Amino acid sequence: MTADTPAGGAPRSRRERPAKPALTRDGIVAAAARLVRAEGLAKVTMRRLAAELDTGPASLYVYVRSTAELHAAVLDELLGTVAPPPASGTFAERLEAVLTSYTAMLMEHPGLARSALAARPSGDNYLDLVERLLALLAEGGASPGQAAWGVDVLLQHATATAAEQSARDADADAAGDWDALVEALRGASPGRRPHIAALAGPLLSGTPRQRLSWGFRALITGVLATPAPDHDDDIGRTP
């Protein structure tokens, strides 16, 4: 029998140690989500997660095929924190509230926001989110095709906004870049660029929250006003 010898103590058999919990996919994803909250997505590697779970990286690949799949699963886990639609308000106001909550969740986890541009979650929380959005669009009068494609456009806008903001927050030169843009727009020549010269103020106006809200409202209006092509059951996207 092998034994460990604690500092200042008698040898203790490894058989006396508490048994480690069995690995499961749900347990691995939950541990990864805790690491994202504490340390950020960049720290969530298979090696780091294996150390957290007191196992070897190879053991994790039995349950998660790749880091990309792990990140998609973590995204789905955190989608469970997206607020449900408010009980009152128009369909558009309630739809915007859900999308804003989704965007805010991504902004809390900058690395996850960038990963979400490519990740393809398919878990229960993602499906629940899509179901809510489809129901709200249908409530607003969207046809099945408009609702189906509209969800994609709305989530793309939310995800891209969160990823853009997270990239700016991490950029040490962001403030200088903004100052340079302000100077360039306000200094535009009316002769060469008359539209920019006339609209420099509006181009620079508004808070990020106001612009996000306006974007959602513009897209919702456009979804309802734009006919969608007939759909069949063929899957049009490729991996």
Rank of each mutant, 00 (worst) to 15 (best):
G111A: 02
D26Y: 01
L95S: 08
V44N: 03
L129D: 09
L41P: 05
G27H: 12
R237H: 05
V182W: 05
L154E: 11
D54H: 12
A116D: 02
A218R: 09
R211L: 15
G56C: 02
P57I: 03
R192Q: 13
R15V: 04
L106R: 11
D54N: 11
A22F: 04
V223G: 11
A92K: 09
L60E: 02
G80N: 12
L127R: 15
G140Q: 08
E69I: 04
R114G: 10
A148W: 09
P239M: 01
W214F: 08
G236M: 05
L78Q: 12
T67C: 00
T100V: 12
E164S: 10
G222T: 02
P227H: 01
L75Q: 13
A175P: 04
Q210Y: 01
D169V: 03
A87T: 15
R192D: 15
L155W: 04
L154R: 09
A68M: 04
V153I: 09
R186N: 13
H195P: 00
P11F: 07
A180S: 14
P194T: 06
D232G: 15
E93R: 11
A170E: 14
L136G: 12
T45N: 06
P18N: 05
R209V: 11
G56Y: 10
T90R: 12
L99E: 12
R48T: 14
G8E: 10
A163L: 04
L75W: 07
L224I: 02
A135Q: 13
R186Y: 03
G145Q: 00
L154N: 10
D173W: 02
G206A: 06
V62S: 06
D232H: 08
E16M: 10
A147Q: 10
R25M: 03
T100L: 10
H109W: 06
P121Q: 05
A160Q: 12
M1F: 04
P57A: 11
L155M: 14
A198F: 01
A83N: 08
L117S: 03
A119R: 07
L41D: 02
H109T: 04
D232R: 06
S13H: 08
A72F: 01
L224K: 07
F91W: 11
A218K: 04
R14P: 02
L155G: 07
A184R: 14
A92Q: 14
R15Y: 11
T45R: 12
H109R: 15
A92G: 08
A119H: 03
I220F: 05
L185H: 07
S13L: 12
L203M: 15
V44Q: 05
H71P: 01
P121H: 06
T67D: 00
W178T: 08
E131N: 14
M107W: 00
L137G: 06
V44F: 05
Q156W: 08
A162C: 10
L133P: 08
A142M: 00
R25E: 14
Y63T: 00
P18D: 10
A116M: 05
G215L: 05
A83L: 10
A180Q: 14
P57T: 05
